[in-house]
Design a protein around this nucleic acid. Structure first.
Length: 838
RNA sequence: GCGAGAGUGGCGGAAUUGGUAGACGCGCUAGAUUUAGGAUCUAGUAUCCGUAGGAUGUGGGGGUUCGAGUCCCCCCUCUCGCACCA
């Protein structure tokens, strides 16, 4: 027994305490929850700060690394702000309606409501294990009547103002999801944003929100918000405002008029044919009998093409003439009318004047079909008789254009437009690329549209007092070729609110982007019953100060939310112009170069890492990976580095347990009273505080974590050498900085020092001592002709003559200047001394 | 095609009012320590040549400057967004 004792003691001394992450993280999570540390007092708006991440779309899978990467660093920023004295509101919720739950139901038979609620429960557990400071009393989900009732109310307000309307239109149809999609939900390659199936075009009667009415407001608002430039550019392009002229072309031998939109009225004299989109309403009317068959065939062939094929720029141009002719309003020339699918029915007027000489597409088309090319704009440095080898699209001098000859084309644009306006043949106009927002979906798991169709009265809005129109539980999701809601007679059959007669309910549901376009307002009081949201709170807390989410929402959610917000402002419900004042996009985390997805089988489960290393290590590792906006490819290679850091920090604080009680720190120290080790520690601590503040403020988490590591290295080296009160000074500050990026560990360390109150319960922040930010001595780099030849250490702010004297004593400087003429000497204070020799 | 961003050691990445390139971490090398360790500690680590020291070096090529990863011009590669918008 006795012989074993020394060994035992030896072991105890040598072995360090392993950081019990599980125990400590659970302890603090429980503490925060029971003490309601993160419940925000929304009545206190002195230093209000609304931080938000895009809420979760519980698509069947649990939280993955991407969610963590989005939420954890943002939470660290929020905590940093809380420590600095802000009244931070950070809520979390669930964007719970949507296709994935319904598709899952079709596959497995599990009702979307059951799977979604179960899923949310799992996710909530994961969220709590992350240890973010979410205010759980503000938690919301969109699939409950208390929430979606207000989607319906919003719809009714739009309806009243004529901003919600129904029309038959060619729409994007996903054959796999069996629903229509908004333009924004069709990907660049013409596939469905959710399932990747090629989207087709169908003519269907659908509900729209008139977002186009807000096109200019949406553009103007971009100037006032602090968003990534790239996102603003994307929205600007998506709205696609362009100034131009509408020109009326008479159809030869008919009363019909073809109106075209052009940004280049200066090329009007160069029109050699006209093109209508195959879907254009005049096509049938104007087609001459001998062309009917060919035109019909062409329209059929276009319909068969997928959106991808049709809009591909590399596709060869196709088209057929319809036999009719139009009259050029400028010169009375008769030009043939064609239809071709390179003209889009959805942009401008769905018809164009073709100027092959000065438009690349028209040029290509004209060459293929042997149509004439007419030159009306002269390229500087060329002759009028030179043949056009390709379309000349830049400005130039007007030729072959009657009275406008000799004008510069920029001037001619104005003059010709004036001429047209005078003759009532056209007018200045503005055109947008933006289309109205198609909000109806032929799916079950969404908000029912509050409309009934009465046999007598027709389309009737459900009165506000009858809301919500509840989504019935019993339906056949597999209902083929239409809305599943139609399968429930109890839902469909109703009475007309106007006449009391027989009526049928609208069976389509709303796009889930309606739900997410105003949820940030609902968080302020998710159970509010007197309206969509608490207006008083909204006027105090909105706009959201910091919004963090994926860049993929640039032209969807982020545009819709701005639109709805502006509409709500016009209703008088909010006083702010914009919903999100500052926006940051987190980068994407890929795995082996590919986006993580279930189907690829490359999803990395964060739970395993949390289990092994703890939440703090995992979130700090994500922050340390690189710049937040960049994301990156996943690798767990370096996570041990963060783990080591945490172990070392924990042991450092264990070794100085309760130190604050015996040796409290002073507010600041005079550098002259400190010895070298104390000075070094004191300086490093204060420099770290100052830099950390700046880095975290700007979402530069990777460098913020690096700063803490540097500080730890300094403390490891010198802390043992300094007196206890300075140790306390250093460790207090270290714990506070740490607690924003590693909240559990930070709290634990703060408590170890001898503090009774939780840091987040009573936030503490230390400002840096400005006197300690600079060093006594600086290293001045000595260069000869820009190459480093020596380094001299001198007291900071040494006068130039002394620096010069010291520099010239350096042997290496002498060696490199010997026998050469000094041209000049440049001194950059405290940094560089450069000698230029010849 | 148009628009935006990026290219730095073996790896992730630091550094921009132009002023010591490679912070911090991983990995690697050597040593110490431990019953053992994939634990911990210490030192080293851009490349090439060397004894001090020197040469080269931020995708490639030019330029401006005493001085360029950083500014300007041309080119290459990658990523993202838009894509027949009249």
């Amino acid at each position: 027994m006795i012989s074993l004792l020394p060994c035992y003691i030896h072991k105890l001394l040598k072995r360090k305490m392993k950081y019990p992450h599980k125990e400590i993280e659970q302890k603090w999570q429980k503490y925060w929850e029971t003490k309601k540390v993160y419940e925000t007092d929304l009545t206190d708006i002195g230093k209000k700060l609304y931080t938000l991440v895009m809420f979760i779309y519980p698509s069947g899978a649990k939280l993955h690394i991407g969610h963590w990467y989005n939420y954890a660093p943002t939470d660290s920023w929020a905590r940093f702000k809380k420590l600095k004295g802000f009244n931070v509101f950070e809520p979390m919720g669930y964007d719970a309606f949507g296709l994935p739950a319904e598709n899952y139901a079709i596959k497995t038979g599990v009702h979307p409501q059951d799977s979604t609620l179960k899923n949310i429960e799992d996710i909530r557990k994961q969220l709590k294990a992350m240890g973010c400071m979410y205010d759980w009393k503000a938690e919301l989900m969109t699939c409950v009547p208390e929430y979606y009732k207000w989607n319906q109310w919003l719809f009714l307000q739009m309806y009243k103002q004529g901003l919600a309307y129904r029309k038959k239109a060619p729409v994007n149809w996903c054959p796999s999801c069996k629903t229509v999609l908004a333009n924004e939900q069709v990907q660049t390659d013409g596939t469905c944003e959710r399932c990747g199936t090629a989207v087709t075009r169908e003519d269907l009667t659908q509900w729209f929100f008139r977002i186009t009415k807000y096109a200019d407001d949406l553009l103007d608002g971009l100037k006032k918000i602090d968003w990534p430039e790239k996102t603003k550019i994307m929205q600007t392009n998506w709205i696609g405002k362009s100034y131009g002229t509408e020109v009326k072309f008479k159809v030869d031998g008919s009363d019909e008029i073809i109106t075209v939109f052009t940004t280049r009225p200066d090329t009007l004299f160069g029109v050699t044919y006209m093109v209508l989109a195959p879907e254009h309403e005049l096509v049938e009317k104007l087609t001459t009998p001998e062309h009917k068959e060919e035109v019909r065939k062409y329209i059929e062939s276009v319909k068969r093409l997928s959106e991808i094929e049709r809009t591909s720029t590399t596709k060869e141009k196709t088209g057929v003439p319809i036999g009719a002719y139009a009259i050029n309003p400028m010169n009375g020339e008769k030009v043939p009318i064609w239809i071709a699918d390179y003209v889009l029915a959805t942009y401008g007027t769905g018809s164009v004047m073709a100027v092959p000489g000065h438009d690349e597409r028209d040029f290509e088309f004209a060459k293929k079909f042997g149509l004439p090319v007419k030159k009306v704009i002269l390229e500087p440095g060329t002759k009028p008789e030179d043949e056009l080898k390709e379309a000349y699209v830049e400005p130039g001098i007007m030729i072959n254009s009657g009275e406008f000859n000799g004008m510069r084309s920029e001037e001619a644009i104005q003059k010709i437009t004036e001429y047209l306006e005078e003759k009532r043949l056209g007018k200045r106009t503005v055109n947008y690329r933006l289309r109205d927002w198609l909000i109806s979906r032929q799916r079950y798991w969404g908000t029912p549209i509050p409309i009934v169709y009465c046999e007598k009265c027709g389309e009737v809005a459900v009165p506000e007092e009858d809301l919500p129109v509840e989504l019935p539980y019993e339906v056949d999701f597999k209902h083929d070729g239409g809305s599943p809601l139609a399968s429930n007679p109890g839902f469909v059959n109703t009475t007309c609110p106007r006449c009391g007669g027989k009526a049928k309910r609208e069976v389509d549901t709303m796009d889930t982007f309606v739900d997410s376009s105003w949820y940030y307002l609902r968080y302020l009081d998710p159970h509010y019953e007197n309206g969509m949201f608490d207006e008083e709170l909204a006027n105090k807390w909105v706009p959201v100060d910091m919004y963090v989410g994926g860049a993929e929402h640039a032209t969807m959610h982020l545009l819709y939310a701005r639109f709805v917000h502006k509409f709500l402002k016009d209703l008088g419900l909010v006083n702010s112009d914009e919903p999100f004042q500052k926006l940051i996009h987190q980068g994407t985390i890929t795995n082996m170069g590919a986006k993580m997805s279930k189907s690829k089988g490359n999803v990395v489960n964060p739970d395993d890492f949390v289990e092994q290393y703890g939440s703090d290590v995992f979130r700090m590792y994500l922050m340390f990976m690189g710049p937040y906006e960049l994301g990156g490819d996943w690798s767990d290679k370096g996570i041990v580095g963060i783990d080591r850091f945490v172990q070392r920090v924990y042991n450092l604080f264990l070794n100085n347990k309760e130190i604050k009680k015996n040796a409290p720190s002073h507010g600041s120290y005079n550098l002259n009273d400190l010895d070298n080790a104390a000075k070094a520690v004191y300086r490093k601590v204060n420099q770290t505080v100052a830099k950390f503040d700046k880095e975290l403020e700007n979402f530069r988490f990777n460098t913020a974590v690096a700063l803490l590591m540097e500080l730890l290295n300094e403390l490891t080296k010198n802390l043992e050498k300094v007196e206890d009160s300075i140790k306390t000074y250093a460790l207090e500050r270290f714990a506070v900085l740490l607690s924003s990026v590693a909240p559990h560990l930070g709290e634990e360390c703060w408590a170890l020092l001898g503090n009774d109150k939780s840091l987040f319960e009573e936030p503490v922040w230390f400002e840096a001592d400005k006197n300690a930010l600079t060093e006594d001595e600086v290293t001045i780099v000595v260069q000869v002709n820009g190459k480093v030849r020596a380094k001299v250490k001198l007291p900071v702010d040494t006068d130039e003559s002394t620096v010069k004297e010291t520099v010239w004593k350096e042997n290496n400087v002498k060696a490199h200047t010997e026998g050469k003429t000094v041209v000049k000497e440049i001194y950059v204070k405290n940094k560089i001394y450069n000698i230029v020799v010849k």
